[in-house]
């Protein structure tokens, strides 16, 4: 009988102690894992009402590596980080062009997955948002 009571008490203790909830602070890490070591090809670009379709054509592409470096089809090479800016996730790129000029830009990550990624930004001097739709291959 003692064993039975011990079993019940231990069971209750386990179920009581185990009532915790885990929270991750690794959203940026999860996103980095999703975009890294892949080449992303631009499928669509939408600026205001104008949609450009690049599916099946020679198009812009960008590669993000796990070591934090990036390279695109325009020859821009640099580093990238993913930051959480008040709930908006941004990819911040610090790079140099083929001519050696420094170029920095921030794109908002609208959605990212293992296959599809959507980024948006407002170009300097513009008021209309441009949205870029990428697919990884």
């Amino acid at each position: 009988m003692k064993r039975l009571y011990s079993f019940i008490i231990v069971s209750i203790l386990i179920s009581t102690v185990s009532c915790n909830k885990e929270v991750s602070s690794t959203s940026s890490d999860v996103m980095t894992n999703m975009i890294a070591n892949k080449t992303w090809y631009l499928d669509y670009s939408i600026t205001g009402n104008i949609t450009q379709n690049f599916v099946g054509q020679s198009t812009y592409f960008i590669t993000y590596l796990k070591d934090g470096t990036t390279k695109d089809s325009d020859g821009i090479i640099g580093t990238y980080t993913i930051n959480n800016n008040n709930g908006k996730y941004e990819i911040q790129v610090t790079a140099k062009t083929v001519n050696g000029n420094t170029t920095n830009y921030n794109h908002v990550i609208e959605s990212v997955g293992n296959v599809k990624m959507v980024q948006s930004f407002i170009a300097t001097g513009q008021t209309v948002k441009t949205t870029l739709y990428f697919t990884s291959k």
Binding site: I14, S18, C19, N20, K21, E22, S27, D29, V30
Partner: peptide, 20 residues
């Protein structure tokens, strides 16, 4: 039931992780 295996980071986003 109490999950004793590791919970993936993807399952911990926005406080979704729950073992019990």
């Amino acid at each position: 039931d109490y999950k004793i295996s590791n919970i993936s980071n993807e399952n911990l986003l926005n406080g979704a992780g729950n073992r019990t």
